[in-house]
Structure formats: C-alpha cells, structure tokens
Amino acid sequence: MPRTPSLAALVLGGAGLIPFLGLGALVILGQSLFGLAPRPLLAAYGAVIASFLGGLRWGAAAASPEGKAVDYAVSVVPSLIAWAALFAPAPWDLRALGALVLAWGLVDQDLPRRGLVPAWLGRLRMVLSGVAGLALLAAGFLGPVS
C-alpha cells in the first residue's frame, strides 16, 4: 500500500470540504445561495457524505480476504443515521449529522490498524471528518433555527 496520499486524494478530499465550509458559513450568517436556503443543502450534502463514509468501510470489507460480516453491517449505519437526521427538525438535523461525521472519523480508525486501508487514509479521514463535522456542528449551533 502507498505510504502517502496521492495528489488526487488530497485535492479531491479538500475540495469536498468546500460545500461544508461555504454552506455552513451561509447558514450561520443567515444568507441564501442564489435564492436557495443553505440549511437543507448542507444537510443533504452531509447525509450524502456520511453515506459515502459507510461505503468506504463496505469497500474495505469487500477488498479484504476475510470480508467480515460485521464490517458490512457497520458500513450501513452512517447511511441510516444520516437519512433519519434529514427528518429531524432544525437545529437537530445538522447537529446529528455533525456528530455522526465526527464520530465516524474515529470509528473508521480501526481500518488502517487492521491493514484494510493505508495508514495515510486514516490520518486524512481524521482531518476531513474533523473539518466537515465541525462545520456541520457550527451551523447547527450558531445558525438560526428556521
């Protein structure tokens, strides 16, 4: 496995934070995005990314010779929680998604320890999940309720 992330992983991972930071700022400032309310856009993006994070574990399980059933089962948890969060009233939607994204960065730290993904991915996930989760939480705590 490669010891360092590729440029593509760094650039695309960093670019994935732009909607979290931009929409989060708009929520906090109470501004719209081309006439659209940023809160549902941020919540939808957070739910999509949470599902993507579950897919990472599914892919790691599929690539592993053992392919443990528990990894497949755990991999669907972010999608289910994120989907439920979309039905939560403001501000709990963004708070739940923020907590989920932060927690899942920690949950997935077993993947590099078990050798299922490269060590750099665990470190990158902590940074990306940290920024994304904090942006969701900031919008959920600092933004207007409606």
Rank of each mutant, 00 (worst) to 15 (best):
M1I: 06
R3H: 10
R3Y: 07
T4F: 05
T4H: 07
P5D: 08
S6F: 03
L7W: 12
A8P: 01
L12A: 13
G13E: 05
A15C: 13
G16Y: 07
G16S: 13
L17T: 08
L17G: 03
I18C: 11
P19M: 09
P19R: 09
F20R: 09
F20V: 03
G22A: 12
G22Q: 03
G22E: 10
L23A: 09
L23P: 09
A25S: 14
V27M: 10
I28S: 07
I28E: 06
I28A: 07
I28D: 09
G30L: 07
Q31M: 11
G35C: 08
L36D: 11
A37Q: 15
P38C: 05
R39A: 14
R39P: 00
A44I: 10
Y45S: 10
Y45G: 06
G46F: 05
G46H: 05
A47P: 06
V48H: 05
F52S: 11
G54F: 13
G54Y: 11
W58E: 04
G59N: 12
A60P: 09
A60K: 08
A62Q: 10
S64G: 12
S64E: 04
S64K: 05
G67M: 11
K68D: 13
A69E: 12
A69T: 10
D71T: 08
A73N: 07
V74A: 06
S75W: 06
S79P: 00
I81V: 15
A84Y: 12
A84D: 10
A85Q: 03
P89M: 02
P89G: 01
A90V: 01
L94E: 01
R95S: 00
A96S: 13
G98H: 03
A99M: 07
L100R: 03
L102T: 03
L102I: 05
A103K: 02
W104T: 11
G105L: 06
L106V: 15
L106T: 13
D108W: 00
D108S: 11
D108P: 00
Q109I: 01
D110R: 15
L111G: 02
V117S: 02
P118F: 01
W120H: 13
W120R: 01
R123W: 05
L124G: 00
R125E: 02
M126N: 02
V127I: 14
V127A: 14
V127M: 12
L128S: 01
S129P: 01
G130P: 02
V131L: 08
G133Q: 03
G133C: 05
L134T: 05
L136E: 03
A138D: 07
A139M: 09
A139C: 13
A139H: 06
F141H: 09
L142M: 09
P144W: 03
V145W: 06
S146T: 12
S146Y: 11
